[in-house]
């Protein structure tokens, strides 16, 4: 048995090395290696080109609900939104309004993780901010701390139906939820559901990738075009960047 374990670990080591050797390629590369682990070699981030985002289009939010079994309760005060479309307009109404999706910003200094009493909310090594739903006690302090309103408490029992995604758990009553960058897809070398949906829609407004990899599309873009983050003044260093805001 010990031998088995060592073999597995050894293979895993080789596989991880493979990931590092071919950065950027892993996102499209087909079957993932047997063993993968989050590593600080990566820093996942998203770039949203607001100019390409259409105010009528809700492909990203729909895809998110489908992928992550995020239900609508029919009560706007309690509906869970991992990603939502916002319309913003300057108060003097001099310019036309702008439409953009907003989700968890996966901050480098996340206030939600700072205030969580049980470390249920934490930053993974690769920069994704996650909620450990097995550990969340439902105190909701994080919901007060988040400046992006990215978090929702699950107020009602949810259930599976034939449309549910079996690979993702349904939402657990009494704990706090938020966008996780579709971590199960990212770990398999795929793109988050919203990014895929945006591309399938032909908009190409969202890019997801590794900021630590200088060759990745997102790194190149962030170096060459002017991008912004929401409430950069708060010093949270969000990792959802916006172009054309």
């Amino acid at each position: 048995m010990t031998m088995d374990r060592r073999t597995v670990l050894g293979l895993g080591g080789v596989a991880t090395a493979g990931v590092v050797l071919a950065p950027g390629m892993t996102l499209i590369a087909a079957p993932p290696p047997d063993k993968t682990e989050a590593s600080s070699d990566q820093r996942w981030a998203m770039l949203i080109d607001v100019n390409k985002c259409d105010s009528n289009c809700t492909a990203c939010t729909k895809a998110c609900r489908q992928e992550n079994n995020v239900p609508l309760f029919g009560d706007p005060n309690r509906d869970i939104h991992w990603i939502r479309k916002l319309e913003i307009r300057d108060k003097e109404h001099r310019r036309p309004s702008v439409s953009l999706p907003v989700m968890c910003n996966h901050c480098e200094n996340p206030p939600c993780a700072h205030v969580c009493p049980t470390q249920a909310t934490f930053i993974r090594k690769d920069g994704i901010v996650l909620v450990d739903k097995h550990r969340c006690i439902g105190c909701r302090y994080c919901m007060l701390a988040c400046p992006y309103k990215a978090r929702s408490l699950v107020y009602h029992e949810t259930s599976r139906n034939e449309d549910s995604n079996p690979e993702v758990p349904i939402r657990a009553k009494g704990v706090v939820e938020k966008c996780n960058f579709c971590v199960h897809l990212v770990d398999d070398g795929k793109q988050p559901a919203c990014v895929q949906a945006c591309r399938n829609e032909g908009k190409h407004a969202m890019i997801f990738g590794d900021l630590n990899d200088p060759q990745s599309e997102i790194s190149v873009k962030i170096r060459t075009v002017k991008t912004q983050t929401i409430r950069a003044d708060l010093g949270l260093k969000p990792h959802v960047h916006y172009e054309g805001l």
Binding site: H114, T118, A120, C136, I137, Y141, V175
Partner: peptide, 22 residues
């Protein structure tokens, strides 16, 4: 009033010293 009061003891097991709650 916690969402999951049955997990209250987790606050003792996994402390986060940046949290005012802890």
């Amino acid at each position: 009033d916690l969402g999951r009061p049955d997990r209250l003891l987790l606050t003792m097991m996994h402390m986060n010293f940046t949290s005012m709650f802890t």
